[in-house]
Design a protein around this nucleic acid. Structure first.
Length: 314
DNA sequence: AATAGCCCCAACCGCGCTTCT
DNA sequence: GAGAAGCGCGGTTGGGGCTAT
């Protein structure tokens, strides 16, 4: 793999962008769109690598960028999201319209970490600092009792703080006024993350929205797309699917397998007619055998009711 | 006024993943 | 299937501005 071929070429300009360069890049993208980044500098008449152009556009030139300092609400939202997502700056940025991952990363490293420490909170774990200290003391005690150093102790699997579900939804509607977002997300998802066997986040079940990075949507009816990786069963076994409840899907799921639709329509009918049909009777485990590559489209409202997190709904 | 230290932020770097050939 | 190319992400760096001495 190595470095980009464009970066190996000589005579590429580096460092700060001049206003002329900005203008060239801006005009080019406004007129022709991005297309292939590696060809952008040549077409725009710039002596920069495509990567540099991409970065400049995303972090500075994009017309939808919000300028100015972060509001208190934005800062609170970043802290809340960081508690769940960790250093996934691009995912955090996708919840803050007009803000870039770089900007948020810089804010975190320069200000928010400091603020949290001042409040007595450890910025990496989001736990009270005294709690962290107690844990460290316990570890030290344990080490001294066994005669082992902390490095020699058996390694307990470390799990991502944001298991199973990557929520990439546009929270613009709540960013300004939902002060309880952290508690809602955290209280709901933390128990899931704590369950054993639920924690292969990359190969397991994940949820993303259909729209991608940098895009936002006010479309309330969009679905979360839950894909089950082919390695799911290998890595986790059948228990991995017990993610929402012990043995059932409490929320209605729309399952598309080989183009065959199933529950979406029923869900809609239920919504429309307040049908009394009980969807909790669909056992999830029974679906688990041939789900490799299967795509679940879970209505957002269904997850909202499942997780009791009302910010999912606008 | 000079300068040392700190802070902030734009930009670079390296790596992993995806797509293309 | 393998290698190359492209893209995106997170970590890091370096320079400019501000402040304290």
């Amino acid at each position: 793999m190595g470095r980009h071929s464009c970066c190996l070429k000589q005579k590429m300009r580096k460092g700060l962008w001049s206003p002329e360069e900005d203008e060239k890049l801006y005009n080019h993208i406004i007129r022709y769109g991005v297309g292939c980044w590696s060809s952008v500098p040549k077409l725009a008449g710039l002596q920069r690598c495509g990567k540099s152009c991409r970065l400049r556009w995303i972090n500075y030139l994009r017309p939808d960028l919000k300028r100015g300092s972060f509001s208190q609400n934005e800062e609170d939202l970043i802290i809340s999201l960081h508690a769940i997502l960790g250093n996934r700056w691009s995912q955090i940025a996708s919840q803050l319209p007009g803000r870039t991952d770089n900007e948020i990363k810089n804010l975190w490293n320069s200000c928010l970490k400091k603020k949290l420490r001042q409040r007595g909170i450890d910025p990496s774990s989001h736990k009270p600092l005294n709690e962290i200290k107690e844990e460290a003391d316990e570890t030290r005690m344990c080490c001294s009792n066994t005669g082992a150093t902390s490095e020699e102790l058996p390694i307990k699997p470390v799990f991502d703080t944001f298991p199973l579900i990557q929520i990439q939804t546009c929270l613009d509607s709540v960013a300004e006024d939902n002060v309880n977002i952290y508690n809602q997300i955290h209280q709901t998802l933390e128990p899931l993350g704590q369950k054993e066997g639920l924690c292969d986040y990359n190969s397991g079940l994940y949820v993303t929205e259909r729209f991608g990075y940098g895009e936002s949507s006010s479309n309330n009816s969009c679905y979360w797309n839950c894909s089950i990786g082919s390695e799911m069963n290998n890595v986790l076994g059948i228990e991995a699917l017990n993610w929402a409840s012990a043995d059932k899907v409490e929320a209605p799921t729309h399952v598309q397998t080989n183009g065959v639709e199933s529950h979406e329509q029923k869900w809609q009918e239920k919504q429309d007619m307040e049908s009394s049909e009980d969807y909790s009777t669909y056992p999830l485990i029974s679906l688990s055998h041939d789900l490799s590559g299967t795509c679940f489209n879970v209505p957002r409202c269904a997850l909202a009711s499942e997780f009791n997190v009302d910010f999912f709904l606008e």
